[in-house]
Structure formats: structure tokens, C-alpha cells
Design a protein around this nucleic acid. Structure first.
Lengths: 183, 183
DNA sequence: CGGGAGAGTGAGTGTACAGTCACTCTCATG
DNA sequence: CATGAGAGTGACTGTACACTCACTCTCCCG
């Protein structure tokens, strides 16, 4: 095989593969070989680009939050009404659409589950910090409205990961009611 | 070593060990040997009591929800004001106290992360069904109040797993404000 | 006392995986 | 064309782990 790329160009591609694969299997349930296969490179080369599995996961998580922030910004900008609550609502809609393919949602849940690994916990907090601050400053909503925004986001994560949206039962509709199409 | 117990008595003890160990390491990050060590039996005997690691995890999760239900019931009974919102609030307080040692909280987060394993997803939904139904019927609160109850519970899980309660920064207080002592 | 049921284990087996290393191949430059 | 920097890999290592099996030991019942 010939030289197709530089390490600088290859890294974000591998990070994107890591997002997909870690979202599918979680940290412990995903192998370097899985990511390498998705990125069409050898497992050995993954270790040339990232020093360890932990750092690869962190790169994936950073990418995940980067995309979320972009989406929230776009959603906020597209809001017809630029009042605080309307902007927050528009962000919620944009987020719901973003995670309709489940990948970024699952990665966050997996990250929560291995947040006791110091570097991962730190990356998770950094991402949440960015999301919280952006939601607050861009919308100008009250602290409690921002808190509610995040809380219902977490509920949405639960609904999708547990497959509650596919349960046609009353308890399931209580939890899912009004949550925007986690299709 | 002598015969100390019957399988029937041993099973719940091992399940309790499984709750502790799986809460610590998650499904993929915990070995049967870890659980066996905690329960002071050999790894081989764990497989005499439970047919597979998956089923052991399910047993742990069932135990976890059993304890949560008991706690919610006790909290509700102890409420001075038996109005719907007051009962729900009392349940929230009891839950906050229950998960102050993080074990049951972490197990739920780990369960969410491996809910794509069919048996585990099923057990998770069964637990959530019990919690949701109990919260609704025992309190008599509105659907949206019950939904809010669960949503803020999930926010609480995020705060604890990500260690947000230890961050002395404004974004962290926005998320943590009013959440009862996740110490 | 003989035997059988059930508690409990030691010693494996097969496999999978994080990380390493010596190596090749390509290409730009002097 | 020589060389060297950097892209990329095959083959390996050491270890860890889910699960199995043949076995022992104890105690109860006839």
C-alpha cells in the first residue's frame, strides 16, 4: 500500500472511527482492532497515532462534544424567536435530531460508565462544561432552565439506551412523553 | 472447608457481591473472579450458582432495583404530608440518601451502558417499569411530575458519575443546584 | 455403616486483546 | 541516484479471563 495520508490528516479520521466503534461497544467492549478495521488501517498504526486506548477514547469523546456544540449553536441560530426559553428549546430540538442516529448519545453513556478513569472523567467534565456554559450564555436562560435542559437530555439518553421508546406500555409513555423523536 | 450453606442461601449473597463488584468495574471491567473473591467462594462455584456472567449481572441488577423500590416505599411512608408532590419529594429524598454510597447508582449507569445485551436491557426495563409505576401509583402525582422525578434522578446520576459535585465552578453549580447531597 | 445428594474447588483450556518491535515502502530533496 | 524522514504493517508477547470438568468432602438417610 502506498502513502495515502499524513498522520495529521489520519488522526481525525481514526478519531471518527473511534466514535463509531466505542459508541457501539463501549470502552471495555471495543478493541483497538475494531477501530483499526473501521479506519482501514492496521492496529499497530493506531498506536502510532494515539499512545494508548484511553487517549483514543478521550479523542473520540472530544470529537463527540465538538459536534454537539456545533449542533447546539446551529440550532440556536435557527430559532425564530430569540428569547431565552425559545433558544433553549431550539437547542433541544437540534440535539434531538443530532442523536437520532444514537451514536453520539451512546458514546456519552459509555463515557459516564468509565468516568472513573481519570483522563476520561476529565474529558467528560470538560465536555459538559462547554455544553452547560454554551447553553447558558447563548440562550441567556435562567440557571434552573439550563439545569432542566440537561436533566431532560439525560432522560432522553435513558429512554434510548434502555429502548423505552419501543415499549408500548403506559409507564413507558410517562417517561417518553414530549421527548422529541428519539427514533 | 465444610459445608456452610445451601445454594439457595448462597445465591443472594453472591448477588450482593455482584452488585458491589459490577458497580465498581462495570460489566466488561469486572471479572467473575472479582465477584467470587468478594463472596469468598471459588470462581468455579459462581458458575454453579449462575449459568453465565450475563445472568449474574441480571441478578445483581434485579437486587439493585429491589432495594431501590424498598427505599422509595419507606420514604413515601415517612412523608409527613401525603399529598402527591410531597410524597414524590419524600421519595426523592430517600433515593438521594440511598445512593449516597454510589453503589446502586453506578450499577444503574453501567447497566445502561450494556443495555444492548438483550437480557440486561430487559432487566433494566423491568426495573424502570417498577420504579415508574410505583412512583406514579404511590404518589398519585401527574405524569409530568413523575417524568420530572426520573429526569432529575438521571441528572443526579450524571453529577455523581462525572464527579461534577466536586468541581467548584459556576457551570457545575448550575447542574448541581438543589440536587440532594450526592456526597 | 454404606451410599448418594449436594456443596465446593483446583487445575486446566481456548481465546482474545493491549501494546511492542523490527521491518518495508514511498517520496521528497540534494 | 543516494539518503533519510515519515507512513504503515506483520508477527509477536504476555497476560487475563469466561467457562469446564473431574474431583473431594460433608452430611443426611436407610
Amino acid at each position: 500500500m502506498s502513502t495515502l495520508s499524513t498522520a495529521e490528516l489520519r488522526m481525525p479520521v481514526v478519531a471518527a472511527s473511534a466514535v463509531r466503534e466505542f459508541a457501539r461497544g463501549g470502552y471495555h467492549g471495543t478493541t483497538i482492532a475494531d477501530v483499526a478495521r473501521d479506519a482501514r488501517i492496521s492496529p499497530a498504526y493506531v498506536f502510532k497515532l494515539f499512545p494508548s486506548k484511553e487517549r483514543l477514547f478521550v479523542a473520540a469523546l472530544d470529537d463527540c462534544f465538538e459536534r454537539i456544540l456545533e449542533t447546539l449553536a446551529a440550532g440556536a441560530d435557527a430559532a425564530a424567536d430569540q428569547g431565552p426559553d425559545a433558544v433553549l428549546d431550539a437547542m433541544g430540538g437540534a440535539y434531538a435530531e443530532l442523536i437520532s442516529d444514537r451514536t453520539l448519545l451512546l458514546l456519552q453513556v459509555h463515557a459516564q460508565s468509565v468516568a472513573d478513569i481519570p483522563e476520561i472523567g476529565q474529558a467528560l467534565r470538560a465536555g459538559l462544561k462547554r455544553v452547560t456554559r454554551f447553553a447558558k450564555t447563548r440562550s441567556g436562560a435562567s440557571d434552573s432552565a439550563v439545569q432542566r435542559f440537561v436533566a431532560y437530555g439525560q432522560l432522553c439518553h435513558l429512554i434510548v439506551t434502555a429502548g423505552i421508546d419501543t415499549v408500548p406500555d403506559e409507564w413507558a409513555t410517562i417517561l417518553s412523553h414530549g421527548i422529541r423523536h428519539p427514533a
